[in-house]
């Protein structure tokens, strides 16, 4: 490629392809007479979205804001905090990392019912599932980031007789940020999955996961697809938001300099 794409092309290509897929989908459903229960046409899904905005909004707030976001910040802060502690005391690494690895291997499907039992049907149990899911990638990425400085940079801090905190604040945390953002990107997608799936195992009568299971039971697949569409949109937007913040904060990193 001998020239970089213009802003217009960067947006036009994916939007164009997306519309093409929707168009083929719509035509296929009509031409082959596919039952709406199996696969509703995009127009039907659009109508479902337009017709149930208050319900979808309520579900979105319940699942994304209350479940996913609360779990994300709790698990994220816990992961980063434990990384800082493990980093400070080397012996903890040997003791805690296997435990953390074990946590990472816990199947969310098995965990969710337990969390519902512990924290109730409302968003608290969903946030707990999300927190456990995002905890591990945040921990591992932060630890990796804290180890990312080379010996020369650490020696430089030693020549200033800088203590642990000063070295952390001035060198190791800034150097770790690109890794932390990588973890955060993984964590945001996990948070959304976790919040939705956790609702399959019991929830109040709202939430995206709740809606997907109940509408599926009624074979109202247009609503199921509407929720899927909105969760995909939300996931993309969250990822984009994190990437945007990352670009601002780690503008100095070779991958961001462009």
């Amino acid at each position: 490629m001998n020239r970089s794409d213009t802003q217009f092309e960067r947006i036009a290509y994916p939007v164009g392809f997306g519309l093409l897929v929707l168009l083929l989908w719509e035509i296929s459903v009509r031409v082959f007479g596919i039952s709406p229960a199996l696969l509703p046409a995009p127009s039907a899904i659009g109508a479902a979205i337009a017709g149930s905005v208050p319900i979808l909004w309520g579900d979105w707030v319940q699942t994304v804001i209350k479940g996913a976001m609360n779990g994300l910040w709790m698990g994220g802060i816990a992961g980063v905090a434990l990384a800082l502690v493990i980093d400070r005391f080397a012996f903890l690494k040997q003791g805690l990392m296997p435990v953390a690895n074990f946590f990472a291997a816990l199947p969310i499907v098995g965990l969710a019912p337990i969390m519902v039992m512990w924290f109730g049907f409302d968003w608290h149990s969903k946030a707990a599932v999300v927190a456990i899911m995002v905890f591990f990638p945040m921990l591992v990425n932060t630890l990796g980031g804290l180890a990312a400085t080379d010996s020369m940079q650490r020696d430089l801090m030693r020549t200033y007789s800088a203590g642990h905190i000063a070295t952390l604040l001035k060198l190791r945390i800034p150097a770790a940020l690109p890794f932390v953002f990588n973890g955060l990107k993984i964590a945001t997608s996990l948070a959304l999955i976790g919040a939705i799936v956790a609702e399959y195992f019991g929830s109040p009568i709202r939430g995206m996961g709740f809606r997907i299971t109940t509408e599926m039971g009624r074979l109202a697949t247009d609503m199921v697809w509407a929720e899927i569409f909105i969760s995909a949109l939300t996931g993309t937007a969250l990822y984009g938001l994190v990437a945007l913040i990352e670009k601002r904060v780690t503008f100095w990193h070779p991958s961001q300099r462009g």
């Binding site: 020369m152 030693r158 020549t159 150097a175 990193h253």
Partner: peptide, 19 residues
């Protein structure tokens, strides 16, 4: 002497912090 900040040290690479 290090704690008394008696010397400045220049390394093989500049090692400036990019941020």
């Amino acid at each position: 002497a290090r704690k008394a900040r008696s010397y400045g040290y220049v390394f093989q690479a500049a090692g400036l912090y990019p941020w």
